[in-house]
Design a protein around this nucleic acid. Structure first.
Length: 314
RNA sequence: GCUAGAGCGACGAAGUGGGAGAGUCGUGGCAGACUGUAAAUCUGUUCCCGUUGGGUGAGUAGGUUCGAAUCCUACCUCUGGCA
């Protein structure tokens, strides 16, 4: 199959682990190149989750169009499918305006789904079926999957109940096999994208993460989470985010504030590691190492790369 | 100074008290997987080396023994008690 290169829209993608400085770079590039920012992050979509998700402040956003931020209430859901649909549409619109779409985010799956044009199984989440399946033992679930879709069963570890259930859900509601549907997607780049990755020496990144948690606290993180908690959103999807879920035991008197801080730091460090794993292994990234002492020093180099990319004839 | 107890693996804990185990639990680190919750969920690994195997190993140095984490001696460190 030949995809006509000429019709591919140009997009800039900024990826990297949490706390590395993606937001700052996105703002700088958007200003310089008349870009519009598309949030590629699974938490910043929720209203009211501002400090803990490290959203750009409204001052920072001023004058630069931002998309897919604050588009959900804290008790609503959001997923890759929603994201990809909206992004495809947004890229079309923004490009038609003669602007450059800049996708910024740390959610590997989301970014991947856009870059490689994932085709998702048609079945939407069926919570009744999921609950019913959830009552069974992991072993039984996995055995069922082995009957219906051996390829998936082999790929998914029996302990990974969420993914076993999702695979079963696809088999049971569509009659298709999860493994067939996902492999139907070829690794074909849908857009003419330059993927800029920001990295940092592990130790320094971890220090930055640790101190950023204290910064968030100073900015009023506890009050932000308490408001959401008191509004009854404790069990919502949005509250599973790092920086939020860790407060629940504290509000219930089961742990100390120090415990909360340490948990948030730990979860953030692990998350950063998982982000590295994804971006390094799943997609072609143009990496730039950030020096935490001079975080904007690389921006000029990156900017040149971007200019070259944008200037190139299609 | 005297006395009682305790010292192992990146860290913490429990347990064992002549036939051992680089064993158990937890934490941290490292690595990995990922197609509708993905900041989710899950997996592997973590003394050394030539890694389907081999080596060293229970504070340190000796001793007893066919065999020692275990018993003995000395020393070091920590904790409690007494001065």
């Amino acid at each position: 199959m030949n995809v006509d290169v000429n019709i591919k829209e140009k997009i800039i993608v900024i990826v990297g682990p949490t706390a590395v400085g993606k937001t700052a770079l996105s703002l700088a590039l958007a200003k310089k190149y008349q870009g519009e920012i598309i949030n590629g992050d699974s938490v910043q979509v929720f209203r009211g989750l501002d400090i803990g998700s490290a959203k750009a402040t409204s001052d920072e956003q001023a004058g630069i169009p931002h998309h897919l931020i604050d588009i959900r209430n804290p008790d609503e859901t959001y997923n890759v499918y929603d994201f990809k649909q909206k992004v495809d549409q947004l890229i079309k619109e923004i490009s038609a305006r003669g602007k450059c779409p800049i996708i910024v985010g740390g959610t590997g799956l989301y970014i991947q789904s856009v870059l490689y044009d994932y085709k998702f199984p048609t079945t939407t989440g069926d919570s009744v079926l999921r609950d019913k399946l959830g009552e069974q033992s992991p072993f039984d679930l996995h055995r069922q999957l082995a009957d219906l879709d051996p390829a998936s069963a082999e790929k998914i570890h029996p302990n990974n109940v969420k993914r076993v259930i999702r695979a079963l859900e696809i088999c049971l509601t569509t009659g298709e096999k999860c493994s067939n549907q996902s492999s139907a997607t070829e690794q074909i780049a849908k857009y003419n994208a330059t993927v800029i990755g920001l990295s940092m020496a592990r130790e320094q990144l971890y220090e930055r993460i640790n101190s950023r948690v204290h910064l968030m606290l100073a900015q009023g993180l506890e009050a932000e989470v308490r408001t959401l908690y008191q509004a009854g959103f404790g069990q919502a999807q949005s509250m599973q985010a790092i920086g939020y879920k860790e407060w629940l035991p504290y509000f219930e008197g089961a742990c100390s504030l120090v415990d909360v801080i340490e948990q948030i730091q730990k979860h953030s460090r692990r998350f950063a590691k998982r982000q590295f794993t994804w971006f390094q292994n799943k997609m072609a990234v143009n990496w730039f190492e950030i020096d935490p002492a001079k975080p904007t020093m690389q921006f000029d180099t990156i900017s040149e790369t971007v200019q070259l990319f944008l200037g190139k004839a299609q």
